[in-house]
Amino acid sequence: MSVLKTGLAHPSRMRGIFRYLLHVKGQKENRDVLESILSPDKLVEHVPENKEKLKDKKMSHPMFNDALREIIKCKLLIEEDEEVAINPNLPQDAINPQLGDRLLPDTFTYLFFASDNEDEEDFGRVCAWYLAQDIYDAPGTWEEVEKRVSEQKVGNFLKMSSSRLFVQMDDWMRYLGFAWGHTLGGKPVTVPDPTAYIKRNLKHLFNEEQEITIQDFISRLAKQCPLFETGKFREEVEAQIGARETNFLSTSTAFALFRLQDEGDIQLERQSDSSFMILPKANNQVDNNGRISHIIWKGYKS
């Protein structure tokens, strides 16, 4: 079962467990001690199913237990001899007490989608499907998602069968940097926009180069996160809903690149005699009708 289908495995709960262990001695703790600190009995006394268990002091801590199970299953943490610890095999920056929490969204993204994690494949397909929607007409509520899933005939493929799954997808995609939300007419609406994820990873994507081709950029992006064009999950999705036109990016990826250019992080260029990709609905964002051959990284801003 993936985090998509484990409603109590919320990003904030899994993050809380990780943040605690990030700063304790040896980055490990006895499981019972960890439970008593992060999920004290007082927090669960009011839960109806625990009333009978109060008599013998045995309490149920479903939020903690579900979150811990999923965080161990994705290998962010390990459990051995009744002790829970941060996985020492993760990159050193990812478990650095000063950097680990800030890098956690990217650590989760790798562990969920780029590490051959079979448990999270359904989650990867759902995220890739959402990013493949037209950002200018994306389903922003459960009712709209349900309708779009039916129209595209991907119900059996995605297995998005309830509003609870949409809420879980929404929470995780926002935390990982693949979406954001706003309120429209008093109703919460979600937008599939991966700007935050791409922005965080520009340094890695450019790999100390200042200028790379758009093809190299997309290839590196898909390798690092297979939710994007040419990545494993996106290809599975496009096989279901129809492939993009040749050399076209999806509108969500194009929109993210437009935003990053507007914010001064990158520059999009069409160089003569070079292969190009088309960023749809470019409007006045770029010259050459959205035909882009190279991306220039402007480096960190002060």
Rank of each mutant, 00 (worst) to 15 (best):
Phe217Gly: 02
Leu99Thr: 01
Ser272Ile: 09
Lys223Ser: 10
Pro105His: 04
Gly100Leu: 03
Lys42Gln: 11
Ser272Ala: 13
Glu144Ser: 09
Glu79Ser: 12
His23Asn: 13
Ala254Cys: 08
Trp297Ile: 04
Thr195Pro: 07
Ala179Glu: 06
Lys75Glu: 15
Glu269Lys: 15
Leu176Gly: 01
Pro194His: 05
Trp180Val: 12
Glu245Arg: 15
Phe18Ser: 02
Gly124Phe: 00
Pro139Thr: 13
Arg270Lys: 14
Leu260Pro: 02
Tyr136Leu: 15
Pro48Met: 05
Phe255Glu: 15
Gln92Gly: 08
Lys301Ile: 05
Glu208Trp: 07
Leu249Tyr: 02
Val191Asp: 13
Ser252Gln: 06
Lys55Thr: 12
His182Asn: 15
Ile278Tyr: 12
Asp193Val: 04
Val47Ser: 09
Glu49Val: 07
Pro105Trp: 01
His204Pro: 00
Gln98Val: 07
Ala254Pro: 02
Asp216Trp: 01
Leu4Ala: 13
Asp287Glu: 15
Phe206Met: 04
Gly290Leu: 00
Lys199Val: 00
Leu22Glu: 07
Leu54Gly: 12
Leu43Thr: 07
Phe166Thr: 03
Arg174Asp: 10
Lys51Tyr: 08
Asn284Pro: 00
Arg259Lys: 15
Met277Asn: 07
Glu79Ile: 03
Gln267Thr: 12
Lys51Thr: 14
Lys153Val: 01
Thr253Gln: 10
Glu263Gly: 02
Glu209Ile: 01
Ile78Val: 13
Met59Trp: 09
Pro48Cys: 04
Asp262Leu: 07
Leu184Thr: 10
Arg244Pro: 02
Val154Asp: 01
Tyr136Thr: 15
Gln27Val: 05
Gly290Met: 05
Asp56Ile: 05
